[in-house]
Write a protein that binds this DNA or RNA. Sequence first.
DNA 1: ATGGTGGCGGTGCCA
Length: 262
Amino acid sequence: MKIATWNVNSVRKRTGNLVSWLGRAKPDVVVLQELKAQEQQFPKLEIEAAGYKAEMVGQKGFNGVALLSLHPVEITARALPDAVADEPARYIEGKISTPKGPLTVGGIYLPNGNPIGTEKFAYKIAWMDRLAQRARTLLATEEMFVLGGDYNVIPTDVDVFSPSAFADDALCQPESRRALRSLINLGLTDAIRAIHVEGPQYTYWDYQAGAWQKDHGLRIDHLLLSPQAADKLTAVGIDKAERGKPEPSDHVPVWCELDVGA
DNA sequence: ATGGTGGCGGTGCCA
């Protein structure tokens, strides 16, 4: 079972790249972020033609998340706990049956939080607390789950091309990193680091200042696994080549494989 | 060197 996450930075602009990648990577389940689309703007026909069922939570212009799957999915959440009426479209979650029991996949688009010292940063930290609350509920089931997405947190200085350049960035703040560690310390496994224990493993390169050409990247897209899922982890990957294609997203797909007996 | 690029929507906001 291959599970992937990809921040596509507009699903309409990226429909061609997305369908092409689905055909080559053949993930079983994918969570997408930054759709920047409402439901009626979502390229459902193109994605279904590629063999995927698609569920999405959209809004006008910003945010937006989707869950794509080759297998039947029961949607279990369209927002985190304590959602408000005009909740930004940042979370989707579904459950899939496997021979080794149910697998829940959550798709996360965590608030950026810049600039620091503003209500935006406070919202980011509060959102991380809500995510941890959801993770606790899922952990109590003692089932397999994967929380994948754009976490907008650089876990350590190894995960950023220039720690000093990002010292005042919300993605690197001690408070952001502490909240991510608290989430992981509930008992989750950072899939990329479980297998690639050293060196940069960037998942994002800014459009500006030749970041891609200079390999000025960040690792901010993560797959966090429950103990029951981590026990079945067999492989991970970062599809870096997507960043070098025409009209790319600034993020690339990140994936893991779980041996669920399928 | 305090810019730079990209997407949305039709002007600045967000990343």
